[in-house]
């Protein structure tokens, strides 16, 4: 008599699996629902929105709301659409990301490999400072920028993003550079390389992944910023988030929900694209900032 051999076959449709996959799928649908509603609403005409329900797919597909939102919708007196906010956000984000990462990576490198007396004190202030609500520091910042003649300009906003992005980025780079083998640094020192040549010739080429993580972190963070945009820029320089809020929450005129939703999708498109393109690196960015912080 030969009994059954080998491992018991795994039942794919065990009650346990049904519960797990069922729950996860329902949750996933719930999390996707707002995005779905946003997109669907932006592709309908206003009569269809009033007649039908919010979850119904568009019967008569129209891209008119997108064109309206991008090029014609009004904020205040100007009616050139959200495109202005988009290009403002691009003009704000690119230099802010470059400057903040350049400064923070050099800082982190100095902290990891060139410790000097007192450096840790400043770093501690910086890390504790990351928890201070922006509201506490914002008005003196306004005064400082006004004194420097930068208040309301793009340069001022770049400075603000650099200063307030510094704690998390410095931490990110410091931890990364500390994790690199010290022998490399020592060997370069023995060969007579100095501060900057080690940074540019050894550290930079080895730390591409962490730079990508930092770029993801900063692009989404700065693109999504609202508070600094509204305080430190003039209306003609308002970033996309501020303009979007002004468009949708304006009390004048008839509410065009389809145009509003098209504008909302447009504003979310950049961070969403980065998120889905970067995959695990995005998670690594927030985890690096969060867990070690």
């Amino acid at each position: 008599m030969i009994g059954p051999r080998g491992m018991k076959p795994v039942r794919r449709l065990s009650p346990r699996n049904v519960i797990i996959y069922g729950t996860l799928t329902i949750l996933a649908l719930y999390y996707l629902l707002p995005l779905y509603v946003m997109v669907v609403t932006s592709l309908k005409g206003m009569p269809e929105i009033r007649m039908g329900n919010i979850f119904a797919p568009p019967v008569e597909l129209t891209f008119e709301p997108w064109i309206q939102a991008w090029a014609h919708t009004c904020t205040g007196l100007s009616c050139d659409g959200l495109s202005r906010g988009f290009f403002n956000s691009v003009k704000i984000t690119i230099p802010s990301v470059i400057v903040s990462i350049a400064v923070a990576s050099v800082n982190g490198y100095a902290l990891a490999n060139w410790r000097f007396k007192g450096a840790d004190i400043f770093f501690t202030i910086l890390i504790i400072g990351a928890f201070i609500p922006y509201q506490v520091m914002i008005y003196p910042m306004v005064i400082l920028l006004r004194e420097m003649g930068l208040y309301g300009s793009l340069g001022g906003l770049v400075l603000v993003h650099t200063v307030f992005g510094m704690p998390i980025l410095t931490l990110l780079f410091r931890n990364y550079f500390s994790s690199l083998p010290e022998e490399l640094f020592k060997a370069a020192r023995v060969d007579g390389a100095g501060f900057w040549s080690i940074y540019f010739n050894i550290m930079l080429p080895m730390s591409l992944p962490i730079f990508v993580v930092a770029i993801i972190l900063q692009v989404t963070g700065i693109w999504n910023d609202f508070l600094f945009g509204v305080i430190f820029t003039r209306p003609e320089n308002y970033p996309m988030t501020v303009q979007l809020n002004n468009i949708v929450n304006s009390v004048q005129g008839v509410k065009e929900y389809n145009v509003n939703m098209a504008a909302t999708v447009l504003t979310g498109l950049v961070p969403l694209a980065i998120y889905f393109a970067s995959g695990k690196l995005f998670v690594r960015g927030i985890a690096a900032g969060a867990v070690k912080g």
Partner: peptide
């Protein structure tokens, strides 16, 4: 899917 909303701004 569960994390994507975090990439969006609070305004959106």
């Amino acid at each position: 899917i569960l994390l994507y909303p975090y990439a969006l701004s609070f305004i959106v």
